Amino acid sequence: MSAILSVEHVGVRFGGLVAIADLHFDVAQGEIVSLIGPNGAGKTTAFNVMTGFLKPSQGEVRFRGTSLKGLQPHEITRLGLARTFQRTSVFPDDTVFDNVMIGLHRQGAAGAPGIGRAPVLDALLGRAGASERRLRERAEALLDWVGLSARAQEKAGSLAYGEQRLVGVALALATEPAMLLLDEPVSGMNASETRVFVRLIRQIRERGVTLLLVEHDMPMVMEVSDRIVVLNYGRLIAEGPPDRIRTDPAVIEAYLGQGSAARRAAAEAQEAAHA
């Protein structure tokens, strides 16, 4: 499969601190790939480079063959690359439905794909009613997609943290992305909510959207990923399918250190590889 996203020897430095060193990997069209690593490994920094919130010190990111160098986040979104954030902000006193409507109005005013004419232009042309109906239908469809239809008229601030994150996913999907980057999507979710979210990820992929995740929930990562890319101290230390990553000695050491459990796991992995 052809690459939809290519991270080409990206480096990020903050003064004398190297946050990312020579990161390089591809994501193929239709894949679900997870970017993992211990705290401080550089995962969110990598996401910020891919989506234009941070400029790399070296290298570049290409999306659908187009270099993203110098592009602003909203320009990257228009190309079809959307993201969520670790912390989802909602308007707590507005309903869940109105939160999504506010997001859709903002994206419409910015000319996001699939949203239709900007509301101000529609008003000038006497088409505000039709535009508003389209936005409401879109909001209803998005809430249904992420499983929040039953909570649509509740105040967003009353939702559990995991459900508030789903509002952020709905807004990212509203841009009709070809690829979606999810930054710690199941953070704050219980086991049941995580299982529901895994199904949502698969449904998103079934609709033709490629996914790249940053996530600390390793059982979830192992279950949902086609491939896993592992960072440690800003460096790529492993890449491959879940079964290979699960037993990779470098990955075990990165997560568990040099303790006896890590050495034993690494030894067992090596024995299994040579069996």
Score class of each variant (00 low, 15 high):
residue 2 S to H: 11
residue 2 S to A: 14
residue 6 S to V: 05
residue 6 S to L: 08
residue 10 V to R: 06
residue 10 V to H: 07
residue 14 F to E: 04
residue 16 G to T: 08
residue 18 V to P: 00
residue 18 V to A: 13
residue 18 V to E: 11
residue 18 V to W: 12
residue 20 I to V: 14
residue 21 A to M: 02
residue 23 L to K: 08
residue 24 H to L: 00
residue 25 F to M: 09
residue 26 D to M: 03
residue 28 A to N: 12
residue 32 I to L: 10
residue 35 L to M: 10
residue 40 G to L: 12
residue 41 A to I: 02
residue 42 G to C: 06
residue 43 K to P: 01
residue 45 T to Q: 08
residue 51 T to N: 11
residue 56 P to M: 09
residue 56 P to A: 02
residue 57 S to C: 06
residue 61 V to R: 01
residue 61 V to H: 03
residue 66 T to Y: 03
residue 68 L to V: 12
residue 72 Q to F: 04
residue 73 P to I: 00
residue 74 H to Y: 15
residue 74 H to F: 14
residue 79 L to K: 15
residue 80 G to E: 08
residue 82 A to C: 10
residue 82 A to I: 01
residue 83 R to C: 05
residue 85 F to I: 07
residue 88 T to Y: 02
residue 89 S to A: 12
residue 90 V to L: 04
residue 90 V to Q: 08
residue 91 F to R: 01
residue 91 F to V: 11
residue 93 D to I: 02
residue 93 D to E: 13
residue 93 D to M: 11
residue 95 T to Y: 10
residue 97 F to H: 14
residue 101 M to G: 00
residue 102 I to R: 09
residue 105 H to V: 07
residue 108 G to N: 06
residue 109 A to E: 15
residue 110 A to W: 12
residue 111 G to F: 08
residue 116 G to I: 09
residue 116 G to S: 00
residue 118 A to T: 03
residue 119 P to A: 03
residue 120 V to S: 13
residue 121 L to S: 11
residue 122 D to T: 01
residue 123 A to E: 06
residue 125 L to D: 00
residue 126 G to C: 06
residue 126 G to L: 10
residue 128 A to P: 05
residue 129 G to N: 09
residue 131 S to A: 15
residue 134 R to V: 01
residue 137 E to T: 09
residue 139 A to P: 04
residue 142 L to I: 13
residue 144 D to F: 01
residue 144 D to S: 13
residue 146 V to G: 06
residue 146 V to R: 07
residue 147 G to E: 03
residue 148 L to V: 10
residue 152 A to V: 00
residue 158 S to F: 12
residue 160 A to F: 11
residue 160 A to Q: 13
residue 161 Y to G: 08
residue 163 E to Y: 10
residue 163 E to S: 12
residue 165 R to S: 04
residue 166 L to I: 05
residue 166 L to Q: 07
residue 168 G to D: 00
residue 169 V to I: 15
residue 171 L to E: 01
residue 171 L to I: 03
residue 172 A to V: 06
residue 173 L to K: 00
residue 175 T to F: 00
residue 176 E to H: 11
residue 179 M to Q: 01
residue 179 M to H: 08
residue 180 L to P: 10
residue 184 E to K: 06
residue 185 P to A: 12
residue 186 V to E: 04
residue 190 N to M: 03
residue 199 R to L: 10
residue 201 I to L: 15
residue 204 I to G: 02
residue 209 V to Q: 10
residue 210 T to E: 04
residue 210 T to F: 09
residue 210 T to I: 06
residue 211 L to G: 04
residue 211 L to K: 01
residue 213 L to A: 05
residue 213 L to I: 02
residue 215 E to P: 08
residue 216 H to K: 10
residue 221 V to W: 06
residue 227 R to C: 07
residue 230 V to S: 07
residue 230 V to H: 08
residue 232 N to F: 05
residue 233 Y to Q: 14
residue 233 Y to A: 08
residue 237 I to M: 03
residue 237 I to R: 06
residue 238 A to Q: 03
residue 240 G to M: 11
residue 246 R to Y: 08
residue 246 R to N: 07
residue 248 D to T: 01
residue 248 D to N: 15
residue 250 A to Q: 15
residue 254 A to E: 02
residue 257 G to D: 05
residue 259 G to Y: 00
residue 260 S to N: 09
residue 263 R to A: 13
residue 263 R to I: 02
residue 272 A to Q: 14
residue 273 A to L: 13
residue 273 A to D: 09
residue 274 H to V: 13
residue 274 H to W: 12
residue 275 A to G: 15
